[in-house]
Amino acid sequence: MVDAAVAYYRIGSLWVRASMAYPASFWMMAVGSFLMTGLDFVGIWILFGNVDDLGGFSLTEIGFLYGATGLGIAFADLFVGRVERLGQMIRFGRLDTMMTKPVPLLVQVCADEFALRRFARVFQATIVFTWAATYVDWTLPRALVAVEMVVSGSLIFFSLFISLACIQFWTADSSEAANAFTYGGNTVTQFPLTVFPSEIVKALTFVVPIAFVNWYPALFILGREDPFGLPSALQLASPVAAAVMLAVSALVWRTGVRHYRSTGS
């Protein structure tokens, strides 16, 4: 684990240095990414210029949901977001080169073209989350659940990124479908799930457990009853969902690598 982290750091920092070869572009990209990731919330804020609440939740409560899912996907994207380019690495033969190096393949794939601008998303989500958290009535259990929520949320998105990217071991050009689950999952959970039909909420709980990223723990932290009448135990079950997702992604990745067929003859 430590070795992998060290290798990740070394490869990542070399890429950061490489990106400094074009400083003007680097700074524009950093600012652009920060603004871009903040747009969703500006959108929500503008919607609230037209309504007082959304699905029974106030702007600050939605800010809390938004910040929590934002932190989850931001950390996942920071560390493993690059895995969605797997198909490209396969096409250009770069994966072959990586496989001849003594560092776990996943570490090399994820550290590839590491860019500081990915911190923009973390930064932006932190701002919204911190602002929204000042409206929460904090207790010790709630604070612990909040920590657990951010860790589990990151791990769920982390697993989603990896498992879905593995599809590219089989078909290299359909990487965009993964966005429907990763960034789509992020968008869904930016809103209170009361906005959506209950079938969708059940699917997000039991099929692709994205609701555990923020919805269930946030109900606990905000002191709310489950609007769909689902068991309150779910509100503490995010680590279980994260563990299951991690196990699935490890399995899928291993299968993918063994199935890898390289390019050419």
Binding site: Y22, A24, V31, L35, M36
Partner: peptide
């Protein structure tokens, strides 16, 4: 600039909003 990723990101932001 020899690299257009920065301007493109800024343009993407403006366009998106």
């Amino acid at each position: 600039l020899l690299d257009d990723v920065g301007p493109r990101t800024l343009l993407g932001f403006a366009a998106l909003f």
